[in-house]
Structures are given as C-alpha cells and as structure tokens.
Design a binder for these strands. Structure first.
Lengths: 250, 250
DNA sequence: TCATAATCGTTCACAAACAATCAAAAACAG
DNA sequence: CTGTTTTTGATTGTTTGTGAACGATTATGA
C-alpha cells in the first residue's frame, strides 16, 4: 500500500468515525505501528487531524460540522418543510433574492416553473437554479471559502443595482434580544443590504437556531419575517412579539 | 508497445483507479522500470499526473473529467502546453483576468502558488481556482447556459471596476482579416472590455481555430497577443504580420 | 500515591524506490 | 546500406520509507 493511499484511507475512516485508534489503522492498512504513527504525525502537520493518546481525531469538529455537506443531512426534513413553505410564498413573475446557505438551497426545486428571476450570492445555488430552468443572476465578489458565498464590496455593489419582491435569508441564530445573527461580517453586510432592497424579507431557519447568538448582527427580528419549524412556548411568545412568525408543522 | 500507447494506457489506468504503482505499470505494459519511470516524469511535466513515492496519482479531478470527455491524450497535451506557457507568463502577485472557456481553464493548475489574484467570469473555473488556493473574484451577471459564462451589463459593470496586469481570453476562431471571433455577442462584449482593462491581453487558442471565423468580432488580431500550438506557413506569416504570436512547440 | 500497562518518541538498520548515467537496440534519414 | 537519433533497459550510488527495539512518557486503577 502506497503512502498516499494510506493517508487517504486514514482520513476516510476519520471522517466516518470522528476518532480512530492506532490499532484499528494498523489492522486496516497492514502497516506497522511505527508507520501509522509517522502517518499521523505528518497528517497532523498538514492540519488534517489532531493526535490524541492512542489515536487521532478530526482537527476542528465545529468547522467540520459547519461545512455545507454535513449540515445538509442534519435536520433535513425540517429544512425541506421550511423551504417548501418559503418557496410557496413566491408568486409568478416575481424577482427574488436567494441568500447563500443550505435552507435557501432547498427552496430551489420548489421554485421551478414559477417564471421568477432569482438573484443569488450563493455559488452552490447556481447549478440547481439553472437545472430547474430558473433565470439566474449572480452577484459578483470574492468567494468565501467554506460557504461558497460571494461577499465584499463587489457583491454589495452589484446587489444595490437590483430591487426585489422578496428576499430569503439564512441565519445562524435568531434571538428576541439580539435579532438575526451570523458568524461572518461580510456575509452579514450582504444579507442586510439584500433585505433593505426587498419589499418583503424572510429569514428561513430551523428550530436549532432559536436562541442562538452568533458574532454579527444582521437585522433585528422586526427586520424580516421568520419561517421556522417549531418553537417552545416562551421563545414563541418572545419572537412573536417582535416579528411575523410562520411555524411550519408537519 | 509504442511510447504514446503506453502513455495513454497509463493515463487510462490512472483514471480508473486514482493511484497506480510502478510495479503495476511494469506488469501491465511489459516495459522496464526505467521506462515507466521516464513515462511518469514526462506525464508529470505535462501536468497530467503527480508522481508519488512508488507510483503516481491524478493531479486534480477537474482536469481528469475534461480529458475524459472526448479528447485524445495527444490533443490534450498540446492544449496543456498552451496553457502551461500562458500561465508561465504570469508573475508573482499580478492581477489576472481569466476568461471562461476550456483552454483558460487548463491554465489554473499552472497558476497555483503564484500569489496572484484572479478575476473570472467563468463559473466552472471557480472550484478549480479555489482548490488551487488562488484568491478569486467573480464578476456578477447573468449565467449563459451552455458555457456557464457570466455575461450582461452586470458582468461588464463589475469588470470595469478592475484593472489587470494580464488578461487571458479564449476565442472560437482567429483570422488575419476578421480578427478574434466568438459566437455569442454578450460574451464578446465581456472579452472586449476585459482586454481593454489589462496592460497585456492574450488569446489562447489551439491550431484548430486558425482561419475560423465566428459570428461576433471580439478584437482585431492586433488587440491581443496570440498563444497557439502550430500554424502552417501562410497562416503564420499573415498572423505574425498583425500581432505577436507565440507558437508553443514541444 | 504508587504500580502497572499502554502508548509515545527516538534511533537504527534494512529494504524499497529514486535519479543519473551509459551502452545496446530500434527507428529513422540520407 | 551507413550514420544519426531516439528509445530502451541495466547499473550505479543516493534518497526515502519502513519496521523493530528501547527508554521515556502518559493514562488508569488499586
């Protein structure tokens, strides 16, 4: 077995199981303990994993979970329902802004055949939009690595040339006091601007975002209607006091 | 077994399995270790694979998909040479415009590690650029279905905010009389503008484009230097009379 | 806290893979 | 057919990856 092969094999197992033992790797690859140990040292140097006593683990579990692919399996059903409802609001011939993010992404199939024009800053959205025959415009800008969102002055500049009927945003957290929040200031700027350019703004976010507060404030709750899947009583009251809420149940 | 045959055989196996061992290749082709080793060195120089201790692996998956499509390895090699030469012109820290299109796409691996900033209107380029760690900006605009190029007033508007050190364009034809031509007027407008914003403009086009004339004129030959692989005598004279030509031979 | 066992990093010797060189064989041109 | 070029395979010494050994370090349970 080639060194590189072994490295890939290790990383593959690591992604499946989050942590691996050296004994497992020895058995799986047929290499000796020394070799595995060396491999782990190298992979750690490349920042691909973190060594722990007896094995290794994924370097940054948070980042791992935040990556688009993993996120998209989590709360899939809820997201589908939220997306379906949000897309249902869109009427024939409207001009829509679709934020980057997984929940807004799920809206795309439900938008098919509506003759809408969609502007998005989400690179990952483009393929799906085109495939569903939706006329699509992309904002320009710098590409943010993880989320594949287009941000920066080029993005906001391009955006400000448009006016929208509706604007659908994602958010990492919503909270009665702090409003809608997201980790990245540049993305927040785009969201904020998009909301201001639309007649109606919506935030789509599943219940796991309730009460979460992230680094940058996008809007106060009053700045956009919220579409979510389920809220407990106290949160529901607090949020409903600030903005329009649509709870999408089964 | 002919050298080229062997090369194709190697690339074929490589596409099936991701990585190959030298021993496998020796057995499969019947050639000696030295010969295989030479082959791998050459194929690596053409950027078709990456050598690793004990064998070789595919350099990047995008190029793999491209060469799978329908081009023979031999044709591929010529295009690779054009791309390699074009990218070789780029110096550390420069600002580059990279047009949508397959030949410009092939330049991307050769740009890696140059600390350049690339602006592109090619959606398909983005993934590869990011993968190679290149700072990338995307022009905005409407997405043209087939070529996935960003065009329209949004694209030209975004573009006009930039200035470039070098600009690399594709073209569907070049001709002494009609200049560089391309089928789509909107794409032509983007190309034209990009060229005007760059200190130096280049068109990359293989010999099959020589003498071809398409619907829309992008530039006269004098508007950009031409990088191509081989031209017959008459064409060479005619073209050289109009612009700088670099013929990339082996 | 101490003892024990598992895990760790380091070192060394060996085997595999490597680049470089050279001469023979094949392909080619005149 | 002869001289030249290209391709090939063997040989060389060098580099790199590997596995075993050993003492040092860390976890764990009495």
């Amino acid at each position: 077995m080639l060194t590189t092969e072994r490295h890939e094999w290790i990383m593959g197992l690591l992604k499946q199981r989050q942590t691996v033992k050296i004994a497992e790797l020895m058995e799986g690859t047929g290499a000796s303990e020394s070799t595995i140990r060396r491999d782990l040292t190298e992979l750690e140097a490349m920042n691909l994993l973190e060594r722990i006593h007896g094995g290794a683990t994924i370097r940054d579990r948070n980042i791992q979970e935040l990556s688009v692919s993993d996120k998209s399996v989590k709360n899939e059903q809820e997201k589908q329902r939220i997306a379906a409802h949000a897309a249902g609001l869109v009427e024939e011939g409207e001009f829509i802004f679709l934020d980057a993010g997984t929940t807004t992404f799920r809206m795309i199939p439900f938008l098919a055949g509506k003759e809408t024009v969609v502007v998005t800053n989400g690179l990952t959205h483009v393929d799906a939009l085109i495939d569903h025959g939706i006329t699509t415009y992309l904002t320009g800008g710098c590409i943010k690595g993880k989320t594949r969102a287009l941000v920066g002055p080029q993005a906001t500049g391009a955006l400000s040339e448009y006016r929208f009927d509706r604007c659908f945003l994602g958010a990492n957290g919503f909270d009665p006091e702090y409003g809608y929040t997201t980790p990245d200031p540049e993305e927040a700027a785009v969201k904020k601007l998009a909301a201001s350019l639309a007649r109606r703004a919506y935030v789509v976010a599943d219940h796991s975002k309730a009460g979460k507060v992230s680094f940058t404030k996008v809007l106060p709750l009053a700045g956009a209607a919220l579409i979510t899947d389920s809220l407990d009583g106290a949160m529901m009251d607090a949020v409903e006091n600030e903005t329009t809420v649509k709870v999408v149940t089964e």
